[in-house]
Design a protein around this nucleic acid. Structure first.
Lengths: 204, 204
DNA sequence: TCAAACTTTGAATCACTGTTCAAATTATCT
DNA sequence: AGATAATTTGAACAGTGATTCAAAGTTTGA
């Protein structure tokens, strides 16, 4: 725990270097968690990707759970970025399609991980509450998009809750089968998902 | 291991009783695996649900992995049943809707578990191969349904692979949020999912 | 170049959990 | 009721993997 909030480090350069390393660890963890899940991933797995012993990780994170927590945080930041981008668009269909495309992209490119797909139950109660709350905010935002679209006559009346679960389920599941070297390219995937998942909501 | 293939048990009654107990264990495991995942679930967790010590489980299964394997098997049987039912229907839309409704029902009612959602990587290589092959057969069957629908002019041209991933993702994700005591009732859920997920495929 | 700060390491510890096994308990069947 | 089979138990074991820590190695900055 001491490593986290230590006295100010000497120089900005050193501080930046440390930050870079933290990010490297985070991404290695992201990748591993995505593939094998949190519990099946050992600290050795993560360390090995970085060519380092697992004890080195403790210089950057107090424990394994903290790494998972950081993964969640980083992912949720990404999702909020997406929401902000979506708000600039005009129609509900555009907004929803954008969110789906971008969320898929986050799953495949940026984070090589799955924002909402990580096991939240492995977190300590406080952190769990925080992450779940943030996740709920995201889900609520999507629901409101759908409700808005229905109100505007763009979408046919649907249960927004179910619709959002279906959309997020489809997206989160990507973590289970997507492999960067596979035949399916990320961009098309997002576009097709958007078409398919929004298509089921539009008025005939 | 000896417990599995033992000499014939004395009476049909005893045999049946043993089978019932096996099923009880299986369902307790299914429930636990669904909620916490395989690795986070301990044998104590499973045993506790049955009011028994974990060592009792070894009388029915040789080890933890065997329980997971049995879960997979049982689930896949259920999916095959669904496919058979679907084949009796006339149109691709009907068949797909049926599969989605029934698969959702399996997720919520029957098995209180998630056929394809269990970690397959925890299985030994042979078993893993077997389960993956069965899962692939199911996915291929769904893809063919979609392709048939496209060929018949019922569905608009789509990448069947992506579409099936989206559908199965939405369904499998149910395991992560669905709680039997929640507000959402299973039947409606299936119907809404079918409408939403098939709606995105139909011709306008 | 050298001392101080930073990073990584190897060895040791600790807790957890899957597994074994012999003994105790309970159910079955005549 | 009593012999036998079936089931459950508690205690012990073993392996894994997270965590601690002091020491070694490396980088930084004057």
């Amino acid at each position: 725990m001491a490593t986290e909030q230590d006295a100010p480090l000497r120089s900005p350069h050193v501080r930046a270097k440390r930050q870079r390393r933290r990010t490297e660890i985070l991404h290695a963890a992201l990748r591993a968690f995505r593939q094998r899940g949190y519990h099946a991933t050992t600290l050795d797995d993560i360390a090995e990707q970085l060519g380092v012993r697992k004890t080195a990780l403790y210089h950057y994170f107090p424990d394994k759970e903290a790494i998972l927590y950081a993964c969640h945080r980083e992912s949720l930041t990404e999702l909020n970025r997406i929401l902000t981008g979506a708000r600039a668009l005009d129609t509900a269909v555009e907004r929803l399609s954008y969110v789906i495309r971008e969320h898929v992209r986050v799953m495949t490119d940026t984070l090589e991980g799955s924002p909402l797909a990580f096991e939240v139950t492995a977190l300590a109660p406080d952190r769990q509450k925080e992450i779940i709350a943030a996740r709920d905010r995201y889900e609520r935002a999507l629901r409101r998009m759908i409700q808005g679209g229905v109100a505007a006559g763009e979408l046919r009346p649907t249960n927004p809750k179910t619709a959002v679960f279906a959309i997020l389920g489809a997206i989160n599941w990507i973590a289970r089968w997507y492999r960067p070297d596979g035949a399916m390219h990320a961009d098309e995937l997002g576009a097709e998902f958007a078409e398919h998942l929004v298509g089921g909501l539009t008025c005939q």
